[in-house]
Structures are given as structure tokens and as C-alpha cells.
Amino acid sequence: MNWELMNESWPELLAAVPVTLTLAASSLFLGFFLALGISLMRVSKIWIFSNFAYFFVYLFRSTPLLVQIFLIYYGSGQFRDFFESIGLWVFFREAWFCAILSLTLNTAAYSSEIIRGGIQSVPFGQIEAAKAVGMSKFLLFRRITFPVAIRQALPGYGNEIILMVKATSLASTITLLEITGVAKKIISATWSPIEIFVIAGIFYLVINFIVTRIIQSLEIRLSPQLFRDRKSWWQSLTQNGKRTVGTQQTFR
């Protein structure tokens, strides 16, 4: 182990953490709304919507992300004249835009299936009851379907977030210098892969550790009835574990 090199290179790798986080956060944010739309299309009874959603999900889930990124970033170059004529070339020539676009579409396809699973797990009796009290379709979705579905989908969505953090590493193949890109740059300059790998790996593991913790505490907050007997990680640190159930868990 070359400690000196590790000491020299960790600030450079740390400086790349925001790039990874920005890529992951922006594509997850945009992808979530797209996924919500797609999953609603997928469960809709109008066949053109559900077929389109099925095709979209099928296409993006059965091809590698790398192909999708290259197709958007390099492939758009083939139609440069067309994109220039409609004024979109300023976006497609940017690696940032292409990376976020492909990551967004990819995560939307995966998370729409997770959300669909949540939506379909909503007990039909609840929907019937909501209809019986005269809720409008939108109110029914906002008050009944969505809150129940999101609780059901949360663990799966947590996995998807981690997969997305990992997937941002592919942005390094289209010139974006996030953690993996910087790591590769340093490795090919210094030829000491293990040291750099350890640092970059620790950064990824820390990010993913924090993500899992946030998701877990969100899960506990949203459905405390499932965690009655279990102490959360934070609680076991802070309040010696005497948890009272049913005092502050009213949702609005």
C-alpha cells in the first residue's frame, strides 16, 4: 500500500463525489415522476397507454445502460443537422444532458415496475370504500392509492436508488469525471489501482450506506406498525430504545 499516494489522491476523488451525487439525484428526481406516469399508463385500461408503457419498460430493462448512453450521446451526432434545425443540438452535444437523459429514462423504466407493484398491491376493498364515500378519481389516487402504494414500493425503490448511484459510474464513459472517471484517470497516471480503488470504493460504500439508512428510517416513519418491536438504528443510539407506539404516528 502506497499511503502517500492515497493521502495525495483522496481530495481529488472527494471533489468528484458531488458530480456522482448530482447525476444520481437529478436523474432519480426526474425519473421518479416519469416512472409515476408510466406506471399509471401501465395499469390503465386504455390499451394504447398500457402497451406503450409495456414497450418502454421492456426496451429499457432488457438492454444494457451503456448502449442507451452511447445511443443517446454518440448516436445523436448522426442526426446533428436534424437536431440543429429543431434547436435541440445545444442539449445533445452536452455529455451532462445525455447522461442525465439516459439515466432518467433507465431509472424510470425500472422504478415504474416497482411502483406498479405497489399500486397493484393496494387492497381493492380500500378503493371500493373510497369510491363508496364518493371520492373523485384524483382524490382517490392522492389519498388512498398513492400513499399505500408508496409504502409498499419503498424497499424496492431503495434498491433502485443504490443501483442508480452505481449506474452513474457509466457517465465516465462519455467524458464526465465522476468518482469512477477520476479514479480511472488517477490509476492510469500512477498505475497503482489498489490504493485508488480502496478510496473510491469507500466513497461509494459510504454513499450507499447513508442511502440505505435514510430509506430505512423513512420506511419506519411511514409504516411504524411494521416495526413495533424493532429499534431503529438511530433510536438505539439516542434513546436507549424505549419506543412508545401510537403516540405521534398520525399521518396527514
Partner: peptide, 15 residues
């Protein structure tokens, strides 16, 4: 499962 495959590929490729 927490580290990108690309990083692992670079590690094995270079080392």
C-alpha cells in the same frame, strides 16, 4: 453490491 462494476473492472484490469 455497493461498488460500481466499472470500478471493479478497472481494478482487475490494471492490477
Amino acid at each position: 453490491r455497493g461498488i460500481p462494476e466499472l470500478l471493479i473492472i478497472y481494478l482487475v484490469f490494471f492490477s
